[in-house]
Amino acid sequence: MRYALRRVLGVIPILFVTWTIVFGVMQLIPGDPVNLMLAGVPASQEVRENERRRLGLDRPFLERYVTFLGRAVRGDLGESYRSRQPVTRMISEQAGSTLELAAGGLVVGLGAGLLLGMVAGLKPNTWIDTLCMLVALAGVSLPSFWIGMMLIYVFGMTLAWVPIVGSGLAALVLPSITVGLFIAGGFARLVRSSIIDAMGQDYIRTARAKGLGWAKIAFKHALRNAMIPPVTLLGIQIAVLVGGAVVTENVFARPGLGTMLVEAVLNKDLPLVQALVVYTTAAYVLVNLLVDLLYGLIDPRVQVGRA
């Protein structure tokens, strides 16, 4: 518990540093937020001056930085330049959709990855192994916009099994497969090598000698011991997903934080970018914490927080 608390408190300096960097970088990159917001429409000078005053962009850099930090400390991350809505509300509105897709992708990725990796790892250097690793390779290397469009073409249009852009659980199927295949690819490769490794260990020979069944050896002894590296990788991938899957969101017309971040950066919508940084930093720390705690569950010999 103390360990978890320490990890969570560790977020504060991380946030301070990232915010300062984001604030600085956003000043350095070219472009004026008012122009970007007006997106090239022929608006008059009057409109531009109004907006500049409204956003406080007429004030000096340092003053804006201090104001921003002061507000952030009080938990007020401000309003989006473009939408004039509180950024925390904007993020919470989009987070649901992103978490849905992350969860869907995780189910597919974990399921398919585990299956492919286990099968390949238990039958190494056979044609089954080659086939599984080929599928895994395809999952990692094929671009998600292509996979997404193919899934739309086959399952959305030709077979018409699932909606392409609808709502509800059915509409989550194709996007989940799209991101899930990517996760499955990397996951399967690590599971395979860890399993091969584990199967060569002494305790497996002991288990065999005890006359244990195949399934019990594979799942209880080999898999559990082989899980630490794949779980670490999975943690990183989930953290990335929780930050949004831009391309998949675009192909399936899903709202989400990935799209939101890209647009916020392109529009130089500073308050929104900063709030998204807070959110993603928190998500990374949280997922990493969970992964660390999971180590202890997988392998009781690992004890976190007690060096």
Binding site: M149, I152, Y153, G156, M157, A160, P163, I164, V165, G166, N250, V251, F252, A253
Partner: peptide
């Protein structure tokens, strides 16, 4: 009024009868 930023997806949704 459904936002579909990807043109290919818009057309696919029209052809699948969703829009």
């Amino acid at each position: 009024h459904r936002f579909i930023p990807n043109a290919a997806t818009r057309v696919a949704a029209l052809e699948s009868g969703e829009v």
